[in-house]
């Protein structure tokens, strides 16, 4: 485990969901944990939605000052610097979707690279229309890396069909994730799925998600 974990990926791949669950996972393992929502792309569903739940667990949440209001202003709070500079807690960064979202990382990259204790995990959902195959996902990964000025270090397979997901849908994407691993030379760090799935998917690297976004 590294001190800084960044979640990047195609927008709608589930980065925010993974980020809040990962922060909770770190905290429950006994680490000081903080989550920064630096998604400057999507003003609707975001990890700041889970702020109250995370703070109850003692996890610090840094969100855009105008998250969930009518102000569509992509300004990052200065506390994010504190998170990458101060090295006493584990930091989870929820980065915005695609290359455009990853651009916001730029100013923090020198600090992260200098400390050199990070993981940048590419979140993939092979049921998303523009990342149906390993090749397509790799293309998005490269665009994100170019925009961020950093290389990914691992893959998270978060393939799901929303409310219609069963174990079978998750298991069926193992090959695509493996292929992306081969193409990129990166390991699949874990396969995430809704903890309420019953039966749970049979995968060798499970990461059940206990916090879920609200859906109307």
């Amino acid at each position: 485990m590294k001190r800084v974990t960044l979640f990047v990926g195609h927008y709608g791949s589930g980065k925010s969901n993974i980020a809040v669950n990962y922060a909770l996972f770190l905290k429950r393992k006994g680490h000081g944990a903080a989550l920064a929502d630096i998604d400057v792309v999507n003003p609707y569903f975001r990890s700041a939605d889970s702020k109250a739940e995370l703070e109850k667990e003692g996890i610090r949440v840094i969100a855009l000052p105008f998250a969930n209001t009518n102000v569509d202003l992509p300004a990052l709070p200065s506390e994010v610097y504190g998170l990458v500079e101060r090295r006493d807690v584990c930091a989870v960064l929820d980065v915005g979707g695609d290359d455009r979202g990853a651009l916001a990382l730029g100013r923090f990259v020198p600090y992260i690279l200098e400390e050199n204790d990070y993981e940048m995990l590419f979140v993939a959902n092979f049921y998303r229309p523009l990342t149906r195959t390993a090749e397509e996902a790799l293309e998005v990964m490269r665009e994100i890396e170019d925009a961020a000025g950093m290389r990914c270090t691992g893959i998270v397979n978060n393939s799901n069909l929303g409310a219609e997901t069963t174990a079978r849908e998750v298991e069926a994407t193992a090959n695509a994730a493996e292929e992306l691993a081969n193409l990129s030379g990166l390991p699949v760090v874990f396969t995430s799925f809704d903890a309420k799935l019953s039966p749970a998917p049979e995968v060798h690297d499970p990461f059940p998600l206990t916090l879920q976004k609200k859906i109307i």
Partner: peptide, 16 residues
């Protein structure tokens, strides 16, 4: 894999 995909409403309009 299923022939279903997970999409945002806005994307579904574009692809359709």
């Amino acid at each position: 894999m299923e022939n279903k995909v997970l999409m945002k409403g806005n994307e579904a309009i574009a692809e359709a």
